[in-house]
Amino acid sequence: MELDVLIVDDSDFMRDLLREILEEDHDVVGEAENGVEAVELYQESEPDLVMMDITMPIRNGIEATDEITSGDPAANVIMCTSVGQEEKMKSAIKAGASGYIKKPFQKPSVLQEIQKVTG
């Protein structure tokens, strides 16, 4: 099942990596480099899934996820987290994240988590 995906990460490298992983099976409908852009693009494009970095400038991924899921409780947000961010991950789940992947990630783990979250 092809999904419309929004990629959110302040790192060009990570956005490029995720785009490469996703474009074969899904449609990347937008990219944001901070939480403010993420919320705006989510509202504009209404994607099926958001791949959200936790640590970003201006508004972090937890705050952006909370805002997105407050407006759309059915939103699917997968957090992208670094090793050692377990406490932040718990906050992200409370904010409405549907799942998470740990950096550095490989294509099989990303696709597996997408399948788990979106059914």
Rank of each mutant, 00 (worst) to 15 (best):
I21F: 14
A38T: 10
T81M: 01
P108E: 07
T65K: 01
G30S: 12
E44T: 11
E44I: 08
E63D: 13
S82H: 03
I54Y: 03
Q112W: 15
V28K: 11
G61N: 08
V39G: 05
A74V: 04
P73I: 11
K90M: 04
G35A: 07
D16T: 15
A95P: 00
Q112G: 15
S45I: 04
H26W: 05
E20D: 14
N76I: 00
I93Y: 03
N76E: 05
G96Q: 04
P104Q: 06
N60Q: 03
V29P: 04
E20F: 15
I62P: 07
K88Q: 12
H26N: 13
P57V: 14
G99A: 05
D53N: 13
V110M: 08
E33I: 09
K102Q: 05
S82R: 08
A64L: 07
P108V: 04
E37W: 05
K102G: 00
P47G: 06
E113Y: 01
D27C: 08
T65C: 10
R59H: 03
E31K: 06
A64F: 11
V29E: 00
T65I: 04
S70A: 15
R19S: 15
P73G: 12
S98V: 02
D72Q: 07
Y42R: 06
V29Y: 04
R59T: 09
Q43P: 03
S45V: 09
E113T: 14
K107I: 00
T81A: 08
I68K: 03
V36I: 15
P104H: 05
K103I: 05
P104N: 07
S109T: 15
I93N: 01
M79V: 05
V110P: 09
L22F: 12
D25T: 13
G96D: 09
A95F: 01
E31N: 09
I54Q: 06
S45T: 12
E24R: 08
D53M: 07
Q112A: 13
H26M: 08
Q112D: 14
I54E: 06
I21G: 03
G35I: 10
I21R: 01
D25P: 10
D66W: 04
D72P: 14
T55M: 14
T55H: 12
L18F: 12
M52S: 03
D66A: 11
T65W: 08
Q112C: 11
R19Y: 15
I58D: 15
V29K: 11
A75E: 10
Q106N: 06
D48P: 02
D25F: 11
I62V: 15
M52Y: 07
G71Q: 11
A97D: 08
S109K: 14
D66N: 12
H26S: 10
K90W: 00
M56A: 07
A74P: 01
H26E: 13
Y42N: 07
D53A: 05
A92I: 03
M56R: 13
A38P: 11
S82E: 10
D66Q: 14
E44C: 06
S91L: 06
A64H: 07
I68S: 04
E46C: 10
L49M: 13
G71R: 12
S109I: 10
S91I: 00
L111M: 11
Y100A: 03
A32S: 09
